[in-house]
Amino acid sequence: MPDPNSLYGPLDPAQDAGWSSAPPRMGFFTDTSVCIGCKACEVACKEWNGVPGSGLDLLGMSYDNTGALTANSWRHVAFIEQPRPAGHRSPPFAGLPTGVPASATSAAVAAETAGPTGTEPGLPAGSSSAAARMATDVLGDPLGAAPGNGGAAPGNGGAAPGCGGVGPRSGDAGPRHAHAGPGDGRAGAEFLGMPGAQPPGRGTGVQGRGDFRWLMMSDVCKHCTHAACLDVCPTGSLFRTEFGTVVVQEDICNGCGYCISACPYGVIDQRGDDGRAWKCTLCYDRLGAGMTPACAQACPTESIQYGPVEELRERAASRVAVLHERGVPEARLYGHDPHDGVGGDGAFFLLLDEPEVYGLPPDPVVTTRDLPAMWKRAGIAALAMAAATVAAFVGGSS
């Protein structure tokens, strides 16, 4: 008879599964704030576990070419594109300098720009820094000047000796350099709405700038404390390891698919060619040899961190506190609470938006939680029907 607490509430999953001298529970902490979407974890997972290729699928709706966790993608790096106006969250790029760059100032001095000849995007009219940049060539010399002498060569209209055609041509409306003064009919360079070199919103402020951001998350099986897939598997193909993880034994799986519908996260999937269920094993073979799982080993930014779950939870709480101090109040943990609907996950996440944005259920609940009560009600109903049947026969015979 299983412990009545095995379907809900905090517990040690390995000991509950019968491991008397189990090591500390191991798991993943995925910090999405430092995920760069490189998909190294996906490749490492496939290479180590011999997972078949998923094909090159262009979804047509995202740069994410995997789409979801499947039988052939045990790790899935989700790309969430958000073309939302800035201001819905903490201001991006807060604290950037708002002054004119030194390079533009130097260019204005070198070009001797006079008068309000142009504007920098987001700056009021009258700024000459943009005109100064447009009045210089790629080497920083004023247009029409001989290279290296900072001015026009005499007698040839600004062209260097022997370089006909560099200076102003006959018929030009005016000189091509920025020495024209206001009111002389020879306008200097003008800002025509072209993108400038400044960071977006330098002059307009954060609230006036549109902000397109990518949220990236390397999703994986959560290795739940209360794993419904374990409860419904009829063959024992799914089992709890001594590390507290959940593994599928593919040679025992009969392809019934019960675990697929039981998973509250939609992680488990069947392969079309054999019908068996497949998912992340948290590299059980590597754990037994004292090695780090392949995905965590390959992650270049340490977005995927592997270790004892209790230690990871402390590390995750510290990371959230740091992000809050740095002006990211939307940072939150997901799947870390042992009192949630699945008893806490062995693989949990730091998110920068609501769980639904990442395709995660906001309040997951183990789907077998109510099985004891359901069987109890079914038993009472069966007894009631049997009693009614007996009463009917007894009453009819009398």
Rank of each mutant, 00 (worst) to 15 (best):
P4W: 02
P4A: 03
L11K: 12
D16C: 05
G18F: 10
A22N: 13
P24D: 02
D31H: 09
D31W: 11
T32A: 14
A40M: 09
E42L: 06
E42F: 08
V43K: 12
V43N: 02
C45S: 07
E47W: 03
W48I: 03
G50Y: 11
D57V: 14
L58W: 15
G60K: 09
Y63L: 13
T66R: 08
T66L: 09
T66W: 06
L69Y: 03
A71T: 12
H76T: 09
V77F: 01
V77S: 05
R84H: 07
P85F: 01
S90V: 00
S90W: 01
P92R: 06
G95I: 01
P97G: 02
P97Q: 01
G99K: 09
V109I: 12
E112H: 14
A114H: 04
G118F: 01
T119I: 02
P121I: 02
G126Y: 05
S127W: 01
S128M: 06
S129H: 14
A130T: 10
R133L: 08
A135Y: 05
T136I: 05
G140R: 07
D141N: 15
D141E: 15
G144W: 12
G144E: 04
A145I: 06
A145V: 13
G148E: 13
N149S: 15
G150A: 13
G150W: 09
G151L: 07
P154D: 02
G155W: 08
N156L: 15
N156Y: 15
G162C: 07
G162Y: 06
G162H: 07
G164K: 09
G165W: 03
A173H: 12
G174M: 04
A178M: 04
P182K: 06
G183D: 10
R186D: 09
R186G: 10
A197R: 10
P199R: 08
G201D: 07
G203C: 12
G205D: 11
G205V: 11
F212C: 11
M217K: 06
S218H: 06
V220Q: 05
C221I: 03
K222T: 15
A227Y: 00
A228S: 14
L230V: 13
V232D: 06
V232S: 13
G236E: 10
L238Y: 10
R240K: 15
E242D: 15
G244I: 02
V247I: 15
I252T: 14
N254I: 14
C259A: 14
I260H: 09
S261P: 01
S261D: 11
A262K: 12
Y265T: 11
G266D: 05
G266S: 08
G266W: 01
V267M: 03
D274F: 04
C280W: 05
L282R: 02
C283E: 00
Y284R: 05
P293S: 06
C299V: 02
C299P: 05
I304F: 00
P308Q: 04
E310Y: 00
L312N: 00
E314L: 05
A316H: 05
V320P: 04
V322T: 12
E325F: 03
P329T: 04
A331I: 07
G335Y: 10
G341P: 13
D345S: 14
E354P: 03
P355Y: 07
P355K: 06
E356G: 13
Y358T: 05
V365C: 07
V366D: 06
V366F: 04
T367N: 14
T368H: 04
P372Y: 09
M374D: 03
M374A: 10
I380W: 08
A381W: 00
A384N: 08
A388L: 09
F393W: 06
F393Q: 00
S397P: 00
